[in-house]
Design a protein around this nucleic acid. Structure first.
Length: 581
RNA sequence: GCACCCAUAGCUCAGCUGGAUAGAGCGCUGCCCUCCGAAGGCAGAGGUCUGAGGUUCGAAUCCUCAUGGGUGCGCCA
C-alpha cells in the first residue's frame, strides 16, 4: 500500500472527471502529475503540482485548475482539506484514519510492507565484485560488493527477478603471474630460498597455497620447466583464490547466484561468435588507432589491429579486440561475456565497476548496444574510492608490497553489519571516508548506531509491555484501536513510515541503495524524537501499564517503525539489533 | 589533448520526474535527567548551492562555457 500513489490515482481520476465535464480540455498528458510529501510539513500531508503542470497545455491559469481540482478532491472521504497555495500547488491534508490504516497494514504485511511490483518480474542481471582471482578482496572490492549486493536486494524488493553474478577474470596474463607466484611458494615449502621479483605477487596469502600444493603433488614440479607445471598450477591456484574470495564474500554475507568464468569462454567459439556477430553488423575492421594526444607513450608506433567500431554506439574512439600479434585483448572476452548475458534474455543489465574502470563504461555500453541492437539496456555504476582512517591517520595501501588492506581486515575489526551500512551511507559516485574508530562509536554521530538503537528501543518497549502482561503480538495489535493515536508527534511517525514504499520505488528507479540508509536515519530520528517526547508527556509513552488498550495502539505504531527498519536494513544486508551493548 | 565523475553551511554530506522559505550530523551558543525513557531530545546562529550565460511560469537539479578537484586514455586485465 503506497499512500502516495493511491492519492495520485485519485488526483488523476478527478482530473479525468474534469475533462468529462468540460472543465479541462481533452488530450492532456498526466504523466508529469506528481503527488509528493511537501518540503514543509506546515503545507499539509501531500502536495500535487497538477495545476502547474497542466496549465500550459490546457491553456488555463494554474490557480483556476487548482481551485476546481481542490473542490473535487475535498469531496473524497480520504481528503480532509485541499488548499491552493503559492503559484498553484494544491496542498492536501489527509484524514488521520489513513495513517492509522497504514500502521495496521504494516503490522499485517510485516517486512514485506513496501514491496513493489514496479519491476513486473523483469529479469535483471547485477554483476558486481568480479575481482581478479589473484588474491583476497581488498577494501575497494568491499564497497563494490556491498553496493552491488544491496542494489540487487533493492531491485528484488521492487519486484524484479534478480540474478547476482560474478565474472571471474581467469583468462589473462595475471593468472600466469599468480601461478608463478604460487610456484615460488611451493618451492619455498620445499625449503628453497626464493625471491619475489617485480611482476610476482608476494602476499603471504599464497604461502598456504604453496604448502597445499606440495601436499598434493609432492616434489613433482621441483626443478621442472614452466611448461610442465604452469597450466596445472594456474588451475589449482585460481581455484584456491576463488575459494578465498567466496569466503571473503561470505564474511560480508554475500552469496552469488552465478559465477561466470572468462577462461571458459576460450576454445568454445563463444568469443569468435560474439565478434562474428559484431562483424555481421559491419562493426569490425582492421585499422590503426590514432595515438592519444598530449600524453603520448614513448614507445608508441602505429600498429594495425582488429577494431570494434564502438564510435557507432556512442564511444569516443574505436576499441581493439585483438592485439597486434593476433591474440584477443581483454575486451574481446568481455564482449563475449556480455553477449552471453544478452542471449540469456535479461531485460536489464547492471554492471558495478570500481572508479578506476570508468574508462570502460562507454565501450561496454557500446558493445551491449551493438550486440542487442539497442534492445537490452545496461546501466553501469561506478563505486568511488574508499579512504581508510585509523586514529585519524590515513591507512596506507600498497598492493605491490603485499600490505594492502583486505576486506577481512575491515570486517574482522568492525563486523559485517557496520561495514555494509557505512559503505552505503554515501552515493556510489562519491568518495567515502571510512574511519575504524568512528564507525564503532556509540553515539548519534554514527548512523549505524543511531538506526540500530531506534530498533532496539522498540524491542525494549515491546518487552516492557509484554512484561506488564499486555498482549502485544503483531496479529493482536493490528486490530488495536488505533484512533487512540491522535497526538501530532505520533501521527508524524506514522507519516514517515508511510513514505517507505515510495522511497523504495525512488531508490530502485535510480539504482541508488544509499537512499535507503538515509531514509532509515530519518525514520530513526522520528522514533527517537517521539520516544523522548514521552519524557515530558507521560501520556505519550509507549507503555501505559494501567491501560492495555492504549498500550497496544502505541506499541502498534512502534512496531510499524521496527518492521520498516528491519525491512530497510534487510535490503542493506544488515541485521537489526534487538538490544545495544 | 580527449572522455567520464564530482563541486551545496566552518567540516562531513543528503536533496525524488525541474517545484514553495535549500536540509541533516559534527562543530559553535543556549536549554532539558534531585538516575522512575539523556548512548538521547529541543532551540538558535551559520548559504550569492564554484562562476557566467541559457531553457522554463519555476533551476542546486536540464543545456553551454569557464574555474577547481578526482579517474582513465592501443600491444595489462
Amino acid at each position: 500500500m503506497n499512500l502516495f500513489s493511491e492519492i495520485r490515482e485519485l488526483v488523476i481520476e478527478q482530473l479525468t472527471a474534469m475533462q468529462a465535464e468540460g472543465t479541462l480540455p481533452e488530450g492532456l498528458d498526466f504523466k508529469n502529475v506528481a503527488v509528493e510529501p511537501p518540503r514543509d510539513a506546515l503545507h499539509g500531508d501531500m502536495a500535487t503540482n497538477a495545476a502547474m503542470v497542466l496549465a500550459k497545455p490546457a491553456k488555463m491559469k494554474p490557480r483556476d485548475i487548482a481551485e476546481a481540482l481542490a473542490a473535487k478532491l475535498a469531496s473524497d472521504d480520504r481528503i480532509d482539506t485541499a488548499e491552493v497555495a503559492g503559484p498553484g500547488f494544491l496542498n492536501l491534508r489527509l484524514d488521520a484514519g489513513l495513517w492509522r490504516d497504514l500502521v495496521k497494514s504494516v503490522l499485517e504485511t510485516g517486512t514485506d510492507f513496501g514491496r513493489s511490483d514496479m519491476g513486473q518480474g523483469k529479469k535483471v542481471n547485477v554483476e558486481y565484485v568480479s575481482a581478479n582471482p589473484t588474491g583476497p578482496l581488498h577494501v575497494g572490492h568491499t564497497r563494490g560488493a556491498v553496493f552491488g549486493d544491496a542494489l540487487a536486494s533493492l531491485l528484488d524488493f521492487a519486484g524484479y527477478d534478480v540474478t547476482r553474478e560474478y565474472y571471474i577474470n581467469d583468462g589473462g596474463a595475471q593468472v600466469d603471474v599468480l601461478a608463478r607466484s604460487v610456484y615460488l611458494r611451493y618451492l619455498e615449502a620445499h625449503g628453497q630460498e626464493v625471491a619475489f621479483e617485480d611482476g610476482t605477487y608476494p602476499g603471504d596469502y599464497l604461502i598456504p597455497v604453496g604448502e597445499a600444493l606440495k601436499d598434493k603433488v609432492g616434489d613433482a614440479y621441483v626443478g621442472q620447466d614452466e611448461s610442465v607445471w604452469l597450466a596445472e598450477i594456474r588451475l589449482y591456484a585460481t581455484d584456491a583464490m576463488m575459494d578465498l574470495i567466496r569466503e571473503d564474500l561470505k564474511a560480508l554475507g554475500i552469496e552469488m547466484d552465478h559465477f561466470f568464468s572468462e577462461k571458459a569462454l576460450y576454445g568454445t567459439g563463444l568469443i569468435e561468435g560474439a565478434i562474428a556477430s559484431l562483424e555481421n553488423k559491419g562493426l569490425i575492421y582492421e585499422g590503426v588507432l590514432e595515438p592519444p594526444k598530449g600524453k603520448k607513450p614513448e614507445d608508441w608506433e602505429p600498429r594495425e589491429q582488429t577494431l570494434f567500431k564502438s564510435t557507432d554506439h556512442g564511444d569516443d574512439v574505436d576499441r581493439p579486440v585483438k592485439k597486434s600479434d593476433g591474440s584477443w585483448t581483454y575486451f574481446a572476452p568481455d564482449i563475449a561475456y556480455h553477449f552471453d548475458k544478452v542471449q540469456r534474455g535479461y531485460d536489464l543489465l547492471i554492471d558495478i565497476f570500481g572508479a578506476d574502470h570508468g574508462g570502460y563504461v562507454k565501450r561496454m555500453k557500446a558493445a551491449v548496444s551493438a550486440l542487442s541492437d539497442g534492445q537490452t539496456p545496461i546501466d553501469i555504476k561506478l563505486t568511488q574510492l574508499v579512504k581508510l582512517f585509523k586514529n585519524g591517520e590515513p591507512f596506507k595501501m600498497s598492493k605491490r608490497a603485499g600490505t594492502f588492506v583486505t576486506l577481512r581486515d575491515v570486517v574482522d575489526q568492525v563486523g559485517a553489519d557496520v561495514t555494509r551500512f557505512v559503505m552505503l551511507t554515501r552515493k556510489n559516485d562519491a568518495p567515502l571516508d571510512f574511519d575504524f574508530d568512528k564507525v564503532l562509536e556509540q553515539s548519534k554521530d554514527n548512523p549505524v548506531f543511531y538506526v540500530q538503537y531506534a530498533h532496539a528501543r522498540v524491542c525494549s518497549a515491546v518487552k516492557k509491555a509484554s512484561d506488564a502482561g499486555i498482549d502485544i503480538a503483531d496479529a493482536t495489535i493490528a486490530d488495536a484501536d488505533l484512533s487512540l493515536l491522535s497526538d501530532p508527534a505520533e501521527i508524524a511517525v506514522a507519516k514517515k513510515v508511510a513514505e517507505w514504499p515510495r522511497l523504495v520505488e525512488i531508490a530502485s528507479r535510480t539504482n541508488e541503495p544509499h537512499r535507503i540508509a538515509f531514509y532509515l536515519y530519518e525514520l530513526a530520528s522520528e522514533m527517537h524524537s517521539l520516544y523522548h517526547t514521552g519524557k515530558d508527556k507521560p501520556e505519550l509513552r509507549f507503555v501505559q501499564e494501567d491501560n492495555p488498550t492504549t498500550t497496544q495502539a502505541k506499541i502498534a505504531l512502534a512496531r510499524s517503525v521496527a518492521i520498516v527498519i528491519s525491512a530497510g536494513l534487510g535490503i542493506l544486508g544488515v541485521t537489526p539489533a534487538q538490544e545495544m551493548r
